[in-house]
């Protein structure tokens, strides 16, 4: 039932916000909201060289799909895309793209915020920050 409304991808190749946008575009949509995550060049003043993303792929895909289904159930939205990358990403590259279309902007904003916030809590993807002199698994320790 939700099949044509949801597009979930986890891939090592570069993400395209255009492809994501085109999936959700719809003549009955009054607005499209997107969140594009990008790799930042520093954390707490320490220069970041690159990030490494690792996923428990099968479970990550099913948790991403749950988020999309939940978004469609709870907000008045048409379509949702959740794309995430794995592997090594350089500063400026895109680890995540979430795009939502809806009849009205409020639902699109809310669903997009819900999706990225929930992704960061439930989807089994891990991120290692590589600094000039050291590396750390993000959020692993209190």
């Amino acid at each position: 039932m939700m099949d044509g409304k949801i597009n979930i991808i986890l891939q090592a190749e570069e993400l395209s916000s255009d492809i994501a946008f085109n999936f959700v575009a719809d003549n009955s949509a009054g607005g499209i909201v997107s969140f594009v995550g990008t790799v930042r060049n520093q954390t707490n003043g320490k220069k970041v060289i690159r990030l490494e993303f690792e996923a428990y792929e099968k479970m990550a895909l099913s948790e991403m799909r749950k988020i999309a289904e939940e978004a469609i159930k709870n907000f008045d939205v048409f379509k949702i895309v959740i794309h995430h990358r794995t592997g090594v990403l350089q500063v400026g590259e895109i680890p995540v793209v979430i795009v939502v279309s809806a009849p009205h902007r409020k639902a699109a904003f809310e669903a997009c915020q819900f999706a990225i916030d929930t992704l960061k809590e439930t989807v089994p993807i891990w991120k290692k920050e590589i600094f000039e002199n050291g590396e750390v698994w993000v959020s692993a320790h209190p």
Partner: peptide
């Protein structure tokens, strides 16, 4: 069975 330490996607 899999170990899931704190996740950090996005």
């Amino acid at each position: 069975i899999a170990l899931i330490p704190p996740v950090a996607g996005g």
